[in-house]
């Protein structure tokens, strides 16, 4: 029997382990279970702490209400303004990051020679490694002043500037995930298309990208899920005015920015403002979880398709 690199160590029955080995194995297993416990703890905390909130505000009112004024009288807890604020950022960031990220992925995978790639890829990764609070600063001090030249009516805080920097932030994810999936498309498909006389652009756009479509889609969903959960840049750049608006030049508030705003205000435990962050957090968690699961499913099917 040959041992391949991926093969597990053959486990005999655990009784044969010496006590030291047995306790070591117990430690290893307990460590692996920490991740499960973390997930459970997240769910328990979010559900348990938002129960008191939903005693005051019905889930129906929470999900469909169009007024979000938790800190002012009369208080209203309709989450739609926060959802719309989040959508501003997600759609704006998506419009920037998805096409540009795919294009960068295409360039890295199909066009760049080994030397260009060795230079370009680390630099794109640097863009991914920059902390989000830095992007917030960039939005405030660079992007918004530039936007003010084009739109004199724009406020200091606006969703457009936040969308742009969040787009820049998720661009490297899209680029490197797209590059990976494009590379996974078998060479034979490309060769076949070339043999039929297709140009390189035709091979890329009509064979490689369609061949990797599910992988590209999965990377898009993952990137959008990140945009939903992005916190610091939108807190700094988009403001804290929850409102139902389609105007990207105005100040808005996202779900994440609301959670930060409340925790900055040092609200005492037991008040409805404190409880409301868990309700908003629960919604945020469920939405991102659903997107991540969808993305993983699609990616898995894509891998099975070619491997």
């Amino acid at each position: 029997m040959s041992l391949s690199t991926t093969q597990r160590i053959p486990l005999r029955s655990e009784q044969k382990f010496r006590p030291v080995e047995f306790s070591a194995l117990a430690f290893l297993r307990a460590s692996a279970l920490v991740s499960i416990v973390t997930t459970l703890a997240i769910v328990v905390v979010l559900v348990y702490e938002s129960i008191p909130f939903f005693r005051h505000v019905s889930p129906w009112e929470f999900l469909l209400g169009t007024q979000w004024t938790p800190l002012l009288e009369p208080r209203a807890f309709g989450v739609l303004p926060l959802v719309v604020g989040t959508l501003h950022v997600v759609i704006g960031a998506g419009l920037i990051a998805l096409p540009l990220g795919l294009l960068t992925g295409i360039f890295l995978s199909e066009y760049a020679g080994p030397r260009t790639r060795a230079l370009l890829k680390p630099l794109v990764e640097v863009l991914a490694g920059i902390p989000t609070v830095v992007y917030g600063f960039f939005a405030l001090t660079f992007v918004t002043p530039i936007l003010q030249r084009f739109f004199p009516s724009i406020g200091l805080f606006n969703s457009l500037s936040a969308s742009i920097v969040v787009g820049i932030m998720i661009l490297p994810f899209v680029a490197s995930l797209c590059e990976d999936t494009l590379r996974a498309v078998p060479r034979s498909l490309r060769d076949g298309a070339y043999a039929l006389g297709a140009t390189k652009a035709e091979v890329t756009l009509k064979v490689v990208v369609p061949g990797a479509l599910s992988g590209v889609l999965a990377s898009f969903i993952l990137a959008l899920s990140r945009a939903i959960g992005e916190t610091m840049a939108v807190t700094l750049a988009a403001g804290s005015t929850p409102k139902l608006t389609a105007n990207v030049l105005e100040s808005i508030q996202t779900m994440t920015a609301y959670i930060v705003q409340v925790s900055l205000g040092d609200t005492p435990r037991g008040t409805i403002e404190y409880q409301s962050i868990f309700a908003v957090g629960l919604l945020l968690f469920l939405v991102t979880l659903a997107l991540n699961i969808a993305s993983n499913r699609i990616l898995k099917r894509f891998r099975e398709h070619y491997e």
């Binding site: 991740s35 997240i42 905390v45 979010l46 959960g229 994440t256 925790s263 968690f285 991102t288 991540n292």
Partner: peptide, 12 residues
């Protein structure tokens, strides 16, 4: 899935 949970949720 944990890798995709927004960092603010860990904060909560």
């Amino acid at each position: 899935n944990l890798a995709g949970v927004p960092s603010i949720i860990y904060g909560i």
